[in-house]
């Protein structure tokens, strides 16, 4: 089975965000990059699917500057993906529709039966690329999947909703976006890390379409007022409840 996985390299989740000099982008000077947390579940699910069908190919697709993201993408190959394609483009103006357009153009030529990706990237949190790729492919999409079973050309997916779980049934080809908990991603083995050094990583120059969602400025959230410690031990409980009622007026 041919399986595509879209991945993105983003600032690690412990990044302390600083706004850049242009006021519109993040100051990347001290930022550590890593494979998007949700994409790890997407890669793992793709590998398991390939393993269960016994044959096939898992290809990673990513948009960005190869020099900055290559080593993180290679970690996906170390886990077991067969090869990677990096669409080399200027990322300063990219929005999710542009990313989706670039990915779709490339993925179409690969002719996969299923496309996995994380439910969203942990930087701009748009959660739009899966639906945009699906719309462009003319395929169904199931977002934030936390359990997936595939048999023949059919799938059964579960997604957590408010106070319950939705069970979605459908047929391939389809786009599946992964929620945390879909699986337990494996760690790359030493053998995998060595093998990844030789796996093909193709870099292709790509021209991104103009964004439809434009950031005019970034700001930091207003600081919260300095917190105060009301007291110690269970004796402080009644005082806190009184403050919540009479000062904060939330109960």
């Amino acid at each position: 089975m041919k399986i595509a996985v879209c991945v993105v390299v983003a600032p690690s989740t412990d990044t302390k965000v600083k706004i850049g000099a242009d006021g519109k982008t993040i100051d990347m000077s001290d930022v550590k990059l890593e494979l998007n947390a949700y994409d790890e579940f997407a890669i793992e699910e793709a590998l398991r699917l390939k393993e269960s069908t016994g044959d096939g190919e898992v290809v990673l697709f990513s948009v960005g500057s190869p020099a900055t993201i290559k080593e993180e993408i290679r970690k996906g190959l170390a886990r077991g993906a067969d090869r990677a394609v990096i669409l080399d483009t200027d990322t300063t103006q990219l929005d999710s529709s542009a990313v989706a357009a670039l990915l779709t153009g490339e993925i179409k030529a690969f002719e996969p039966e299923i496309i996995f990706m994380g439910k969203q990237s942990v930087d701009y949190d748009s959660a739009q690329v899966p639906s945009q790729v699906a719309a462009a492919m003319g395929w169904p999409v199931v977002t934030k999947v936390s359990s997936l079973a595939i048999e023949g050309g059919a799938f059964r997916a579960e997604r957590e909703i408010e106070g319950g779980v939705e069970v979605v049934e459908g047929t391939l080809p389809a786009v599946i976006s992964a929620e945390k908990g879909l699986n337990e991603p494996r760690y790359p083995s030493l053998k995998g890390i060595m093998a990844a050094k030789k796996k093909p990583m193709e870099e292709k120059a790509a021209e991104a379409p103009a964004p439809v969602l434009v950031i005019d400025c970034l700001e930091l959230p207003p600081p919260r007022p300095e917190g105060k410690i009301v007291g110690e031990g269970p004796e402080a409980a009644a005082k806190v409840v009184e403050l919540l009622r009479n000062e904060a007026k939330v109960i």
Partner: peptide, 11 residues
Amino acid sequence: VFAGKALAWTH
């Protein structure tokens, strides 16, 4: 954006 570490004004 960034789970609330920053806010983006967009159009």
